[in-house]
Amino acid sequence: MSDAMKPRTFFLFVGPSLALMLVFIAIPLVSVFVQSFHVEQPVYRQVETERCTPGFPAPICTKETRTASVIGADGRPVTQRVFVGFDTYRVLLAPERLAAAFAPGGGGWRALLTIDFYKALRFTLTFTLITLPLVIGLGLAIAIAVDSVVQSLRGPIIFVSLLPFIITPVIGALAIRWLFVGDGILTRAIEFFLERDIAVFAQGWSIELLMLFYRVWHVAPFAFVVFYAALQTVNQDSLDAALVDGASRFERLRYVILPHLAPLIAFVALIHLMDAYRVFDEVIGFSSEAHVISLQWLTFHYLTPEGSADRSIARASASAMLTMVGIVLLLVPLLRRTWREHRRLESQH
């Protein structure tokens, strides 16, 4: 009996969710796209003034035209939206400086990484790609270790392991920062062993190392729980068969357990790819903006009014669009695989 819903019923159920995603995700995306090609600027007009100084026989008068911004009824300058094409993108991507950096004697990578956008892109990509194998490796190691521990200890171990995962990201980053900042307890410990003074927050690479550590610490529990749950469903028969064939512990891990976990490793990798690319809270928690910034932080930065400078919506929109292009490029291979799988399943039916 096919109990498929009628399209009308289906839309009644999905409607509210669809409407929310349309209004708060799809439409904002379109408007960000449009905003990135426009800038808000004050309206100027030409004012002609005549200045006269007393003279003989007639006063000497000079006429001059100035530009002045138009003041609206509310006392604020009137602004208008102007189409500027790819100008904002050009400001962000700085193609001239890019070319200059790689021209002979231009300074190469070092010069390139002084441009905010490339600096953020460099960090975001290395951050994503370095943490990925570490998260999967650590998660797998904990899962296998917990799987070999007596039953009664597993609950408490899972409880403690979940703490880094559940904690507010900014707070987790702060907790680790306070161990190292200034004369924090761990900075003191390292100084004791190295017998020299160190300052963890004075240079980019040590902050970046802490940020990588924080992310692995924060996400490994998620990988652990997923892998641990899957370990409970490993086929006992194939393990026994491997044992009869004389497989060593390592061989059983390599040829029975890991293939069983493969789809879940892909799942954790996909989720981690999406989340690590969005890296942001670490920059806030470690206050690393002077040394290390991420793509999402760059957009956040343009959206924050600072002092007398207003929010620069156009730049934020352009950097948001570039960030989005990046994540789509990263996801395309994975989505194509899902699509092929879907087609394969459909053709089987």
């Binding site: 995306l29 999406m274 690319y277 942001f280 957009t299 956040f300 959206l303 669009m321 994540i327």
Partner: peptide
């Protein structure tokens, strides 16, 4: 997968 700042730039 969308970074949230992308959406906030729209809001």
């Amino acid at each position: 997968a969308l970074p949230h700042s992308v959406l906030v730039a729209g809001y």
